[in-house]
Every structure is written in C-alpha cells, then in structure tokens.
Design a protein around this nucleic acid. Structure first.
Lengths: 237, 237
DNA sequence: TAGATTGTTAATCGATTAACAATC
DNA sequence: TAGATTGTTAATCGATTAACAATC
C-alpha cells in the first residue's frame, strides 16, 4: 500500500481517500454507459443508483475531486467522464505485461475492458517454451527471459501475474528489478516487494471463503437452531 | 452486504467484523502451509508476517473467534486451522455452479484452490449450445436451461458468474429464483439482488485503474514537476 | 522464577451517513 | 421566486494500532 513519498505542494490539498479512489472506476463505468446513451446530465441520486452506492457517499467522493456539479441541475456527464479519467490517470497510455499465459492469463489477455481504458497489453510472457510464438488474443506469447528487455523497451510500469503460486515471487522480483512499480497479482500468495511498489491482489479462493462464511450464517439462522455457536466438539457441555 | 436478520442468542457475542472475516482466509492459507511443513505452533508475530499483516491486527482478529492461543507459547497450528475452517464454514461441502464457460470460466473451473477448500463444482453452464457436452476441467459443459434443475438437485447455494456483462443480470435473476443466495460476480456490471443475497465482485478493470491512479502519482512526484494538479486543459493559466 | 507471548484496552484514524445551507 | 440538487458539516460508526497487564 505504499504510495511513495508524499511531498505534495498544497496545489489544492491532495490526498483522495483510498475508499474513494476504489469507487471512481465504478462511477466512471456508469458515466460511460450514460455517455453512450447520450444522456447530457445526471444527478447524484441517479448516478449513485447506477453505480450501486448511496448518493451522500457519491457527493462526498466527488467533493475530493473538486466542484464539478451544478446545484439544482446535476453533473455534466461528458465533463465528469473526463475529470474522473484524468484523475485516475486514464488519459495516458499504460503498457502492461501479463506473465503466465495459462487459462487465466489467456482470459485476461482477451479481456475487453483492458484496451478500452488506456491499458495496452505490451506483451504476454510465459516460462513454457512450447507456448512461445503461439497467438493469444492476437499477440504472440514470448518467453519469460525477454521480460527485462520488454519492460525496459516498452516502458512497462504495470505487471499482471497469472502464474502458479510457486512462481509468483520470482516473477515479481524480476518485474520489480526491471522497473515495474505496480503489480496486479492473481496468484494465491503474499508477495513481498520493496517500498514504492504497489501490489493489488485478486483471489478467487478468498472471495469464495467470504461468501461461505455468510452463507453458513444464513443456514444457521434458519435450518438448525444454530450449529452450536462457539463450543467445539472438544468440550463436554 | 446484507447478512440476513441478526437475532443471535448471546451465545458469546457474535458479530465478527467484515474486515476480520476477509482476513481469515489469509491466515488459513498461511497456517495450511505451516501445517504441511509439520510446524506445531506459531506465534502471532510469525503468522502475521506470513500472512502479510501486522501482529496486533492478527491477535485482535483472533480474539473475535475465541481464546485459541497460549500465552508465552503461541498458537497450535492444527487447532487453529480447524477453528478458522469451521468459522468460515469450510468444514462442510459447498456445491457451486459456474455460469459462462469462456476463457475465464474455464480458468475458474481449472482453479485448484476450489476443491481444496470444501468447494465443489457442481456444474459448468453456458448458453452456447455448441459447447454442450465439451469437457472442461473434466466436467461436461451443460446448457444454461438446466440451471434451475441443477441448482435444486445439487442444493447449490453459491453461483459464480463469468458471463459477458450483458448476460450477468439475467443469469443472476435465474440463479436467485432457483435458490442461490451467494454470488461471485466476474462480469463488469452492478448486479441487483433481493435482500438476503450476498454478492461479491471481482473486477480486473477496476483493479488496474486503482493501480494506474497510484502509478500516475508516483510519476508526478518524480518526472515532471507534477502534471499540473487540478487545472484541466480547458482553462487558460 | 524469568522470559515470552497472548488477549484486551484505549487511543487514533479513516469511512460512512444524514442533514442542510448554499446556490443554480 | 420556487424547486431542485450540490457541496459541506458534523455525528457516528468501524477498523487499526500501540501498549501492556495477564498468564503460560
């Protein structure tokens, strides 16, 4: 979660809360849909509904970006799309490499939402020499040994890891050494990285376990009269 | 996020914080690794390091589960594995259906972490009749029209959506109508569900955008002298 | 007993939300 | 002007963290 040094000039008080940053893409998606339907303006209430949050939260979030709305009217859709895109850094091009072109890596390479938002797949890398040259999503798979060259040549700063867990740390180390400073990790491992490198993790198994927890509670509430709270099968009463 | 009614008997004060629930799978994974190496006990400090959190947080988290440690000694690995598994509901079997067997759906079907934690793929479903019968991860793809029967027959309460965004809401409605009460959504859409149904969302595009935001800030700190803060290309100076 | 480490307290921090004055 | 809706305040809630007494 290190965000680098924070010696911001008081341009206009920086520091957008993480929770807000995480919701900006949600707003952007809803706004893009409105834009495609040529809707000119939208109220916080409507937009919040489309994004699945409450409107007070949305207005608070937007207040960190500036005053981009008009009281009594709402927000100009196009203008807000631009402002949020700019704030998120999507007005520039972000070359990414995907490492590990198994089922998941291929799925990611084919994912449409990539290109549409300033992200460009600079290369697909895999350790399996048998894969080299094979086309996935129109791009040739290249060997992992080309990692350093590609990251340097294409100025890649974002890496996506879709390797097995066992390979993830080594790949991370190589990416970081080559100059990558943001990593999206799909491998089920905790990665260690130096300060200044951001890691985000996507973990199917964790999400399912969280669902199971809540699911179990629902079952406990209804079926049986609660499968016995805290006391495990170890103790007498 | 609805967790159903909460008329808990004061068994021993329920209500594990969401943030804690979300970390239990992390601890469990670290503990499982220790268990495989036959490590008998572990301190909060060691386990926290392995899970990538700080030890105060870990001890606080565990305190919600009960007093499963021994002062001066640490935690018994096997016992803790069992307690956390039980708390998460992983001591029972959870049949899940995966809907949408494209690249991503296939990747999910092949994902090993599934079976290892009480999750069992009850069926793979797709709307494409051409896919029907094809084996993916050893299971035949079945037509989406079998959804209702399968959910009922296999007592499926968890559904995984890996369809295109356009199909996700309809699939959700059918899953919910058929009795599914937990949904893991990989489609980039906000789903609406009735109370009592939990939805968790995994969104590649959102994760990348969050990384881009931080990446942009790093670049702004070092390269240029900050790409001009708030004032867009619209205004003069 | 001395050393180690848990479980809990209390302080702090960050996020959410309702309410409403400002203002289009 | 009257109605609508933003932007902001302030209260509340939940999560994090350091510190340490309890206790093995």
């Amino acid at each position: 979660m290190a965000t680098g040094r924070s010696h911001r000039p008081a341009t206009r008080s920086r520091g957008i809360p993480e929770a807000t940053v995480a919701r900006l893409p949600l707003y952007l998606r809803a706004l893009t849909a409105l834009s495609e339907r040529s809707v000119p303006t939208v109220s916080s209430e409507e937009l919040a509904a489309a994004a699945g949050v409450n409107s007070a939260k949305l207005r608070k979030d937007f207040s960190y970006l500036g005053s981009y709305g008009t009281r009594g009217v709402g927000y100009d859709v196009e203008y807000l799309v631009y402002q949020i895109s700019r704030e998120l850094g999507l007005t520039q091009d972000w070359p990414v490499v995907i490492v590990g072109i198994g089922n998941l890596g291929a799925a990611l390479a084919n994912y449409g939402g990539f290109a549409s938002r300033g992200f460009r797949v600079a290369a697909l890398l895999d350790a399996d020499t048998a894969l080299a040259g094979k086309l996935v999503a129109g791009l040739p798979v290249r060997h992992i040994d080309e990692l350093e060259t590609i990251v340097a040549d294409s100025q890649v700063s974002i890496g996506v890891i879709a390797t097995p867990a066992g390979a993830a740390q080594e790949v991370t180390d190589r990416l970081v050494a080559a100059g990558v400073t943001s990593i999206l990790n799909f491998a089920p491992t905790v990665l260690s990285v130096p300060d200044g490198v951001d890691v985000r993790k996507v973990d199917l198994s964790i999400e399912l376990q969280i669902l199971a927890f809540h699911e179990q509670r629902k079952a406990g509430d209804e079926d049986r009269q609660e499968p016995d709270g805290d006391v495990p099968a170890v103790m007498p009463a």
